[in-house]
């Protein structure tokens, strides 16, 4: 988690502008990540429109020197950007979603740690949907077609997306990558697109790929503490599929504790239990995924 910088007055911000500090063009900020003193802190005369809510740091102290460039002749300028770092991805995601909507296709982004059973679950789901729901799968992996091959012959259109090939070996799928993969799917002939993300409990949660719903798999061999350790992922999903429950008799895994931890970080998430090995619980998982 990020480090907070707390001030005596209760506000939290990395830059403290003491009332007597404004006259100093060289103004050292005590910040762990800030390795230099910056000379000018101009937030612009138009004030701040960013929405940090009530707990936002108070910039009002800076307003009285906003726009004042006197004593500042190094030929530098601060440019306000205020651009969300995921904006570009989110715009691509919106285009993907519009493409799905145009063909009345439901898209689900399926995420998990490596080895939790996404592909095994998908194989079970595809068997159950075969002949009833027309499914496309976007299969994301850094390397190899192993998972795509595992899903072949189950009646689904499959678009393989190796992030190691021209996508910088990314540890997640982002919206432009999925847009690229959609060229390999005939959306007009599909009802449902299942996007199997790269196995990773961190990065995939940050990148909207344009799916309508997000689900993740967490297997009982992973430990009850995972929702607390990977809150961004567990907060990002509508459904948590608890897989490998056939192993419960052999493990110390405390299902109730896991669900309490999940509820603590994401009270809205639905939970389904299954075993991709035995097929237990797969009917409910299938029903959720098909919407």
């Amino acid at each position: 988690m990020g480090r907070f910088h707390r001030h005596d007055d209760g506000t939290v911000h990395s830059h403290e502008h003491d009332s007597d500090g404004h006259g100093h063009p060289q103004h050292d900020h005590d910040h762990p990540a800030d390795h230099h003193s910056h000379e000018h802190h101009d937030h612009g005369a138009d004030g701040h429109s960013h929405d940090h809510g009530a707990a936002d740091h108070d910039h009002s102290a800076a307003a009285d020197w906003a726009g004042d460039h006197s004593g500042y002749a190094t030929g530098a300028e601060r440019v306000e950007v205020l651009e969300r770092i995921f904006d570009e991805n989110d715009q691509a995601a919106a285009r993907n979603r519009a493409a799905f909507d145009a063909h009345q296709v439901t898209a689900v982004n399926l995420m998990s740690a490596p080895g939790s059973g996404k592909t095994a679950i998908l194989a079970q789901v595809l068997r159950r949907l075969r002949g009833r729901v027309r499914v496309g799968v976007v299969e994301g992996d850094i390397e190899t077609a192993i998972d795509a091959d595992r899903l072949a012959g189950l009646g689904a259109q499959i678009a393989l997306l190796n992030t190691g090939h021209g996508f910088g070996g990314e540890c997640h799928l982002d919206a432009p990558m999925v847009a690229h993969a959609l060229a390999d799917l005939d959306l007009a002939s599909l009802d449902l697109v299942l996007i199997e993300n790269v196995g990773n409990l961190v990065c995939p949660a940050e990148f909207d790929v344009g799916a309508h719903r997000r689900a993740m798999v967490c297997s009982v061999t992973e430990g009850e503490d995972k929702p607390l350790k990977y809150p961004v992922m567990f907060r990002a999903v509508d459904l948590v599929i608890v897989n490998k429950i056939d192993l419960l008799p052999h493990l110390d895994f405390d299902l109730a504790l896991f669900e309490a931890n999940l509820k603590a970080v994401n009270p809205q998430a639905a939970v389904l239990h299954c075993s991709a090995k035995t097929g237990q619980g797969l009917e409910a998982v299938t029903a959720w995924l098909e919407g």
Binding site: H50, H52, E77, R78, V79, E83, R84
Partner: peptide, 21 residues
């Protein structure tokens, strides 16, 4: 209570850049 609204904590944005002119 868990009946809470998030006021801040999900920000992730480029606030500003300093450029040479």
């Amino acid at each position: 209570s868990t009946d809470v609204t998030l006021l801040s904590g999900e920000e992730f944005l480029v606030r500003s850049i300093d450029v040479e002119t």
